[in-house]
């Protein structure tokens, strides 16, 4: 953990994000589909991303993208134009590559994708894959991604967490959440 961040944290100065919470009732995501949250989450929005977390995004994080279109990047870095960008004619393999490269672009290390396979995204055919990587500090992390391509648009749900304790802890709830998608 960069020591400077610890200093900032102690002095309660980490950049302000206002967190809300998500109850158990069904929830609409970006006017595209609804999910059943399964457990209580904290939530915030970051640009076009809706992010849910129980213990804070360093430890566990469930990200919902809006519909990504041609030329959209998954993440943005201030002042940096060159980012991996989605293209409407991508295959599932290329989407997996796009997600892996996006993770690397924001500092994830040694990102390894596995298990790309078809999966249901609500009533629509979609795909899923898993990720293993390290944070820049070297903390082992795991991820699971569910997505669907529809008419040149990409929807993604990205679950990540510390490999120890946190990713396994909410995995079951996340799988149930994936299964609850209604478009």
């Amino acid at each position: 953990m960069p020591r400077l961040l610890i200093l900032v944290a102690i002095a309660a100065l980490a950049a302000c994000t206002t967190y809300g919470s998500v109850g158990l009732e069904s929830r609409k995501i970006a006017s595209l589909y609804s999910v059943s949250p399964q457990i209580q989450w904290n939530r915030y929005t970051d640009g076009d991303l809706e992010v849910w977390t129980v213990d804070g995004p360093l430890l566990d994080s469930l990200q919902f993208t809006s519909a990504l279109g041609d030329g959209d990047s998954l993440y943005e870095i201030e002042g940096q134009e060159q980012m991996p960008r989605f293209r409407g004619n991508m295959s599932e393999s290329e989407v997996m590559e796009f997600v892996v490269d996006s993770f690397a672009a924001v500092g994830a290390q040694k990102v390894e994708p596995t298990g790309l396979a078809p999966a249901s995204f609500g009533q629509r055919p979609g795909f899923r894959f898993d990720l293993a990587y390290q944070s820049g500090d070297g903390l082992d992390k795991l991820g699971s991604v569910l997505g669907t391509l529809n008419d040149g648009k990409l929807y993604l749900i990205i679950y990540t967490g510390a490999a120890q304790y946190y990713y396994p802890k909410y995995k079951q709830a996340v799988e149930a959440l994936f299964a609850s998608i209604k478009i």
Binding site: P2, L5, V51, G56, G107, A108, G136, L139
Partner: peptide
Amino acid sequence: RVSFPAPA
């Protein structure tokens, strides 16, 4: 480039 995701 802090650890992903960047909280600060």
